[in-house]
Design a protein around this nucleic acid. Structure first.
Length: 419
DNA sequence: TCTGGGGTCCTAGGACCC
DNA sequence: TCTGGGGTCCTAGGACCC
């Protein structure tokens, strides 16, 4: 058995923990630049607001209904997530942290437990210790656990916990028949209409379909999903997150950037971030990709977008070498006369630091000691304390975050006050 | 005025090897 | 008249996840 525990409206719930006035009110959390809705409270979902809607399109609805918007506060959500994962990890020796707001638990050895009751204990502890609401689903495979979690969230009768293993075969059939096929983990917005056109419109129908036929019609991925729905595990628990194969950092700008100099600052900043992540996982990058683009939503503006990959003579994790490569690429990409809206970098061809393949001819090796010092100073004094001059100071392109809550749990000066 | 960020896996086709 | 068989690697694009 697997459990899937998932935070309800996670970002909104994090905001509510420290600002109880938001309880019972419609609340959204916005993406970077206060662009799109990325989290909605139940009250907002009830108003019919869809995930990913641009905030500016909701201004009227928000005014009418008193919707409160918050800018993304990833320091807060990330820290609350770490606390939640630590609490959840107490409930099983096997845990896979799947995303910022969900984790799987391995339930081997819990055969004699009343899982529904166990799930309620999980909910109660997270609620009491952190103030966060979660739902719990149990199933024989990860796909079934996901599905059970969906049931726990959507059907009030289950009280926030669903154990599919406890249902009779007939009871399970009836439940699955009432769930839209698009809710299945791995069936996306492209696959849903195709499946429905073939007469498979609920989860039971998908579970009972011929897997070989589905493989021919769709892919091996869907075949595996069907096996998982039938209780045959195809996806294991990954307790240790594998090293990333690529590391990206990209950001839309708060204001358009027209000049090369501004783009250079942004690209250098993003490389700095990506290189930090690279060093943290103990990898080296063999190539740097850089890209820029104008605003694709402004159809009447001149459009330009291009990316370029710059290979390194020798794999490196030295920010200075990576920035140099990225800026080389950027110079070749840049065309004057455009309103640039976004830039990004991607570190590619990652290898483990201990498996470095040296270049045949002399190459600039950078200096790992300098990077270590930089990382330590920044870990202690805060991100960006020590950085390359190329990143610029107080740039105009920095993103907008007009409605951000304090970093209640990670900054001494922003601790909540209790009167 | 205003539209996010960061990943993985699979497949098909082309180039190339012996 | 008649022209094989068995592979790997790379890239781009699509689909999916949060």
């Amino acid at each position: 058995m697997f459990a899937l525990i998932d935070g309800n409206n996670f970002y909104v719930s994090c905001e509510r923990v420290f600002d109880p006035k938001l309880e019972g009110r419609p609340v959204v959390v916005l993406s970077n630049n206060d662009g799109c809705v990325v989290a909605r409270s139940q009250e907002v979902k009830a108003l019919g607001v869809k995930m990913g809607v641009p905030w500016f399109q909701l201004k009227d609805l928000a005014k009418q209904n008193g919707i409160v918007a918050k800018s993304s506060n990833y320091s807060l959500y990330g820290d609350m997530s770490a606390r939640m994962m630590a609490v959840l990890g107490q409930f099983s020796p096997d845990q896979e942290i799947y995303s910022i707001d969900e984790c799987f638990l391995g339930m081997d050895g819990f055969e004699r437990y009343d899982l529904a009751a166990y799930g309620q204990r999980i909910r109660a502890r997270v609620r009491q210790w952190l103030g966060l609401p979660v739902c719990v689903g149990f199933g024989e495979t990860k796909t079934l656990a996901k599905l059970a979690n969906h049931v726990a969230k959507k059907r009030p009768g289950f009280g926030g916990v669903c154990d599919l293993g406890a249902l009779s075969p007939a009871g399970r059939d009836a439940l699955l028949e009432g769930i839209d096929v698009g809710e299945v983990w791995g069936v996306g917005y492209r696959g849903t209409p195709r499946l429905k056109a073939l007469g498979i419109d609920n989860v039971k129908a998908l579970r009972d379909a011929d897997p070989k036929w589905l493989r021919r019609e769709f892919s091996v991925v869907l075949e595996r999903t069907v096996a998982e729905l039938n209780g045959t595990p195809c996806i294991g628990l990954e307790e240790e997150a594998p090293a990333k194969q690529q590391i990206m950092s990209s950001r839309a700008f708060g204001d358009y950037v027209y000049e090369l100099a501004g783009l250079e600052e942004a690209v250098a900043t993003y490389v700095g971030r990506a290189a930090e992540k690279l060093r943290r996982q103990g990898s080296l990058a063999g190539a740097v990709q850089v890209y820029v683009r104008t605003n694709p939503f402004k159809a009447d503006h001149p459009q330009y977008q291009r990316g370029l990959t710059v290979p390194l003579a020798e794999p490196s994790d030295d920010t200075r070498l990576l920035v140099r490569a990225a800026l080389l690429g950027l110079k070749r990409l840049y065309k004057p006369g455009y309103a640039y809206q976004k830039a990004g970098v991607m570190l590619m061809d990652l290898t483990d630091t201990s498996h470095m393949q040296a270049a045949l001819f002399d190459a600039d090796r950078g200096n790992p000691a300098v990077m270590r010092v930089m990382d330590r100073i920044n870990a202690y004094w805060g991100r960006g304390t020590l950085r390359l001059a190329a990143e610029g100071v107080d740039p105009a392109w920095r993103m907008r975050r007009g409605m951000m809550s304090p970093c209640y749990t990670t900054r001494w000066s922003e601790l909540p006050l209790v009167n």
